[in-house]
């Protein structure tokens, strides 16, 4: 088959289109970012998860160590059961704290892990016992108003 300049242009067009798609996938999308190869699963109960969603990040000292995979309501305890996948490279002691935190004032919520002092490490399928629920703004305001009201009554 003879080669024509037309073929060349069409080739350039197709290559540019595919390059744009790859660029969108790698640079704009999250296909390249943080691929956890090996993970282990732990779970924790929270009395209130606030706005935590599946796929929310799990951070320890600000470093991304895993993702929330599943959230469901436990019908025995009436608490939220949060399942998380953690990177195998990062091992945490059994008495690690899991807190639901907010990035920025109105940002999205994530789980912060604070390592404890236990020498045994968390294993696959185990539970993080020490948790702190999300801070719900309404509760906070309610408490504040209650305290103020108490203060204004006390001095008399």
């Amino acid at each position: 088959m003879e080669r024509t300049t037309l073929d060349l242009w069409v080739g350039i067009f197709v290559v540019a289109g595919i390059a744009a798609l790859v660029m969108l996938a790698m640079k704009v999308g999250n296909l390249s970012s943080y691929n956890m190869s090996e993970t282990y699963q732990v779970h924790a109960y929270f009395s209130n998860i606030g706005g935590l969603k599946p796929k929310a990040s799990i951070k320890s000292a600000g470093v991304l160590v895993g993702r929330v995979t599943d959230i469901k309501l436990d019908m025995q305890r009436y608490e939220a059961d949060v399942v998380m996948n953690l990177d195998k490279r990062y091992q945490f002691p059994k008495d690690t704290f899991a807190d639901i935190l907010t990035s920025g004032l109105l940002g999205e919520q994530y789980i912060g892990l604070v390592a404890g002092g236990d020498s045994d490490m968390l294993q696959n399928g185990e539970q993080i016992k020490k948790t702190q629920s999300a801070v719900v703004l309404e509760d906070l305001i309610g408490k504040f108003i209650y305290n103020k009201a108490e203060e204004s009554v006390k001095p008399k």
């Binding site: 067009f13 197709v14 540019a16 289109g17 595919i18 744009a20 798609l21 660029m23 969108l24 704009v28």
Partner: peptide, 15 residues
């Protein structure tokens, strides 16, 4: 064939 390629280029250049 060309429409998805053109749209991908549009988005990439737009970013």
């Amino acid at each position: 064939i060309s429409m998805p390629l053109l749209a991908a280029m549009f988005s990439a250049v737009g970013v």
